[in-house]
Computed example of a mutant assay.
Amino acid sequence: MRVLLLESIHHDAVARLESEGYHVESVRTALDEAELIERIPGVHLLGVRSKTQVTARVLKAADSLVAIGAFCIGTDQIDLGAAASEGVTVFNAPYSNTRSVVELAIAEIIMMTRRLTEKNALMHQGVWDKSAVGAHEIRGRRLGIVGYGNIGTQLSVLAENLGMRVSFYDTDDKLALSNAHRCATLEELLESSDVVTLHVDGRPGNAGFFGAEQFKRMRPGALFLNLCRGIVVDRLALRDALVSGHLAGAAVDVFSAEPKGCGDEFISELRGLPNVILTPHIGGSTEEAQSDIGDFVANKLANFVKDGDTTLSVSPPEQPGIFMKVLPCPKRGAGPVTALRS
């Protein structure tokens, strides 16, 4: 069994898959389409995070692939329809990094509300600016959550525990937790919230849905966070809202175009703005979350190969019934072992 893991997937996943006798190749960076097409032949299990795009062309070139593990929450980087038609099952980690993303959101809301980034920058310049002007408590302020899924609901509960009032908007019918208020429209949420945070998925229909019109609807002096997917926000419209002073600040962790690996240059229209917190897609990048994700997805892949278990798979193959593929025996390197394709 050959396994290709991209984007510095946690060593716990490597150890788990190697314990099954699989040959694991781990790559530090993402691969572009052409690079992945070159590397994918002969690979039985593929592991990616958020940057590598597993396209229909990649899947067509994958002559041995039986399953893909997305070592993250989102799966929009994988062509799920093409995976299903090619008989490739896809797994993800829908819960493992939820807490890490929520904690980052809470931290950034406090940092912006207290203007800590500005105070920190001045202190490093040797300027002592002991002033309460523009600094506030988050208690009593209204948090508007766009997308009330696993992350949005946990953020809702923690924010209320800190004394915030919470509103949310979701296109699906979601049960409000605690005292959260469900908004009938996105406009209602934008016009009433002191802080707006996005937690939607990266499906194509969400691309560019938050732009100049939505920023204009937000309250003057409001704060904005995007910790979900870069494609959902018009970056130029966000910059205009910040430069004009309509928004007091923003925190952005995700970008439509991201560097392949650590140390590569990051380019964005938001660089250099003093009231913006920029982080390199680290919402789920804690040791705890990455270890949990590594264990969870690696176990899903191993159990799929051994038992055909597709529990919690996001894209089972389209073909009805059980499809078998003969692979080298992972324990002894000889003799057939059967991997279930669905």
Rank of each mutant, 00 (worst) to 15 (best):
residue 7 E to Y: 08
residue 23 H to Q: 04
residue 31 L to N: 00
residue 38 E to Q: 12
residue 46 L to Q: 03
residue 46 L to T: 10
residue 72 C to W: 01
residue 74 G to I: 05
residue 84 A to T: 15
residue 99 R to S: 13
residue 103 E to W: 03
residue 105 A to L: 09
residue 108 E to M: 14
residue 108 E to T: 11
residue 108 E to S: 02
residue 113 T to K: 00
residue 118 E to A: 11
residue 120 N to M: 13
residue 121 A to W: 13
residue 125 Q to M: 11
residue 128 W to V: 07
residue 144 G to S: 14
residue 158 L to D: 05
residue 162 L to V: 14
residue 174 K to H: 14
residue 176 A to G: 05
residue 177 L to H: 06
residue 186 L to V: 10
residue 188 E to A: 15
residue 189 L to S: 03
residue 189 L to M: 07
residue 200 V to C: 01
residue 200 V to R: 00
residue 205 G to C: 09
residue 206 N to P: 01
residue 209 F to S: 04
residue 210 F to V: 14
residue 220 P to D: 08
residue 223 L to Y: 07
residue 224 F to H: 02
residue 237 A to E: 07
residue 237 A to N: 10
residue 256 S to N: 08
residue 261 G to W: 09
residue 264 D to A: 14
residue 268 S to E: 05
residue 269 E to Q: 09
residue 269 E to W: 05
residue 271 R to H: 12
residue 276 V to K: 00
residue 281 H to I: 09
residue 284 G to S: 11
residue 284 G to Q: 04
residue 285 S to F: 14
residue 287 E to T: 12
residue 289 A to L: 11
residue 292 D to Y: 03
residue 295 D to F: 12
residue 297 V to Q: 02
residue 299 N to L: 15
residue 299 N to R: 09
residue 305 V to S: 10
residue 308 G to M: 03
residue 308 G to T: 11
residue 309 D to V: 04
residue 314 V to A: 02
residue 320 P to V: 05
residue 320 P to N: 13
residue 335 G to Q: 05
residue 340 L to P: 00
